[in-house]
Design a protein around this nucleic acid. Structure first.
Lengths: 201, 201
DNA sequence: CACCTTCCCTAGTGATCGTTACAGAAAGGG
DNA sequence: CCCTTTCTGTAACGATCACTAGGGAAGGTG
């Protein structure tokens, strides 16, 4: 049932405004981005923002969803498409090196960096991103465990250890990107990290 | 020349107050820690804080110095005391695993995490910590280059790459510690990272 | 004792925080 | 046309931000 649109129509593109909000949260983080910063970048007034997106936390939640759908799904795709854990991680690290240094976007990863300095009142935001990060690492672990069970990776591999190591490298790459590392440098870091991975059978 | 102390003496221990300020900045970061938070934790009024430490930025600068002298010097000591780059990094990673999960202190490293989400007005604080991080990596690189020149590490090592990889792992370990990783888990991550290092001659 | 220096406490500065009340503007439905 | 509905802009809300003026308190010095 399509309800006909009534009343005065919105004068801005909601998707475009969400994109601008994402860029700001991505660059400066949740707490350090003010409503005034957001309305300025989105080109709308505060009441329009609140009418379209709810409060700041709700907007940030939607921004995180938007980011994951648009810039974070390369990880899920690699884990789906690549035949082995090693190949998937190799591809994820290589693509992360490019993504984290893309000159068209803020550096690093929003999920990794946007809520690391949070006031006590924003603890829930911090907790959500923390959960997303740990979920990713558990996905790595499950993939590695499957390969160990299938005999693709050697028995003494230690899936938990290898998954956490990989997560640490990715998070470190995000920080390095913010600290000025180039794409080529991050690709070299990724290459180095793969030396710690056991060879496949 | 010792100038005699005149006037009413300070009623609090400056070192202890600085320590409390450090713990707060360490846990929540620069922007997310307010003067009110600080005065509450330090047990003093705002004018006493300003008289003893200057403004917020100056206090943070001193907090960073204090942190580096007290909790960050294990890196410099390892680089001084260990005979090779590999041994030094091995020790640094092992000690970082313990330091970043010490239950008596905030998790992770202040230099790595305290200024990642900064408002545009706090860009200088962000830049200072960024500089400290990159200086550490360059110190790793110099150490590795020396070992390559001395023939301790193989010729094709790539000191820049190995130093950045090591820095990324340390920064990732700090994030993981904040995300709930245990000391044993971080030690396993450190062990995995060393697998990427070339063996010494 | 009085004096001088320095510190602490109360209270407040203007600015900015996230958020909203309210009134006018712009659309569709009658 | 008027009416209803929804959005937009102005302007403000109380709370908190970093920071400080001013008066009284607490020490050493004469």
């Amino acid at each position: 049932m399509v309800t006909k649109q009534r009343g005065r129509p919105r004068s801005f593109d909601r998707e475009e405004a969400l994109e601008q909000a994402m860029l700001l949260f991505w660059a400066h983080g949740y707490d350090a981005t003010s409503i005034a910063d957001l309305t300025r970048a989105m080109g709308i007034g505060a009441p329009s923002l609140y009418a379209a997106f709810g409060d700041k936390r709700t907007l940030f939640d939607e921004v995180v969803d938007h980011h994951r759908a648009r810039y974070g799904e390369f990880m899920a795709r690699a884990m789906e498409e690549e035949p082995t854990a090693r190949r998937a991680i190799e591809r994820i690290l290589r693509e992360a090196a490019a993504a984290y240094t893309d000159p068209a976007r803020p550096r690093g990863c929003l999920v990794i960096t946007a809520a690391t300095n949070c006031a006590p009142g924003s603890a829930e935001v911090e907790e959500r991103l923390r959960g997303l990060r740990n979920t990713n690492i558990r996905a790595f672990q499950a993939m590695i465990e499957a390969d160990v069970a299938a005999g693709v990776l050697p028995a003494g591999t230690g899936p938990r250890r290898l998954a956490q190591f990989t997560g640490a490298v990715i998070q470190g790459m995000s920080q390095q990107a913010r600290d000025g590392a180039t794409r080529a440098e991050l690709e070299a870091v990724a290459e180095a990290a793969m030396l710690a991975w056991p060879q496949e059978a």
